[in-house]
Design a protein around this nucleic acid. Structure first.
Lengths: 196, 196
DNA sequence: GAAGAAAATTTACATAGGTAAAGAAATCAG
DNA sequence: CTGATTTCTTTACCTATGTAAATTTTCTTC
């Protein structure tokens, strides 16, 4: 089972760029499997991020929280995603984005410092890291475009396409927050859509 | 003058990670200086991006445009910034973000394919590219947080801090668009701020 | 399967901020 | 300089969506 998770991670990295077996041998020693029950935080606001995880099972969310405690969902993670306070890991500044399990989850976790220390001797891994950073950037930009150019109903339809089946697994208020509207408004949108 | 621009670029890259002189020798041959009069596009919607530029003089903006032709400014570029349709360059998909000079500009321009071809033989350059991608990601996330957690007046104040002096050089409607409000609303905010 | 909790919907009302258009101010070109 | 253009501000009006609270529905768990 742990082996299977590691295989998923290996396949993911190889999908970015071919990883040499020497590199992988070093890499797989770094990761350990962690169970995260529903509702737990992988990452909280205000402290420095130090770990990265690779989600192999379950659903998680990333969100911001304002002074008054209002939460804004920014992303859902499904199996096969890297999670972690990427900006905080890179800059060393306090983390601003919370990450929480919405179902029971399984993760492969490692210390980011150990991971990135390998870049010096493993150019294939540094390449993977570049491609991953680029992919993260593109994802953020695509989401930004979605938020700017689409109205709430279209965003809802896009959410349904991008996360098939997820709608059934998590509360609607989480989806509303992800769409940038209130549950009230999402309910109005759904009613309107159902009427035709 | 062209030499001076190249020095700026070199300093910028060295600020990311030390660049070997062999790498720089190859690199500087790739770039050529381009003048961009006010109002010209570096990049338009719908076609694939192929070039990157390094802005050495002037101000540019990046923006999205919806079906109806309404524009949404997402970023201003000041000297010392890389510009180009980064997402499109990476993915090969059609570009979605327009980039236009707001004043007369000077740029160092190169073909991205030639630039990235050097990664294979120049790990220092690939490292710079990784750090740049990470930096781009962090910038986007910080801006995202700003848009989510701050109201329009705070965003205006942040704009003034982040782009000192820029306010005087470009029309207010460009700033309003960057802040995500109408010129009407920015005017209301300014009036309110002036009253104390 | 009944009681309680959580989630979703609906309603009534309030309001921030949009649109449109007119007028004032500033800037530019000849 | 001066007329023309562009930019900025203001006003009036309107609508989408927020808030709050009540109601209904769905999900848990004992």
């Amino acid at each position: 089972m742990g082996t299977y998770s590691l295989e998923t991670l290996k396949a993911f990295l190889n999908g970015l760029t071919p990883i040499r077996s020497e590199t992988w041998q070093q890499l797989e020693l770094l990761f350990s499997e962690v169970q995260l029950p529903k509702g737990r935080f992988f990452l909280e606001d205000g402290r420095k991020a130090t770990q990265i995880g690779f989600l192999t099972d379950g659903v998680m969310r990333a969100f911001y929280r304002n002074r008054e405690g209002v939460e804004y969902n920014k992303h859902f993670f499904v199996p096969g995603s890297f999670i972690g306070g990427y900006a905080s890991l890179i800059t060393g500044k306090p983390n601003q984005i919370w990450q929480q399990s919405l179902t029971d989850c399984r993760l492969l976790v490692t210390d980011f410092a150990s991971f990135s220390a390998l870049y010096d001797t493993a150019p294939d891994l540094e390449r993977a890291a570049r491609l991953l950073a680029e992919r993260f950037f593109v994802q953020k930009e695509e989401r930004e475009i979605e938020l700017v150019l689409s109205d709430a109903q279209t965003r809802y339809e896009l959410f349904q396409q991008q996360f098939p089946g997820l709608e059934q697994r998590i509360p609607q208020y989480h989806i509303a927050s992800y769409l940038g509207v209130t549950p009230t408004q999402l309910s109005r949108i759904r009613r309107k859509m159902a009427r035709r």
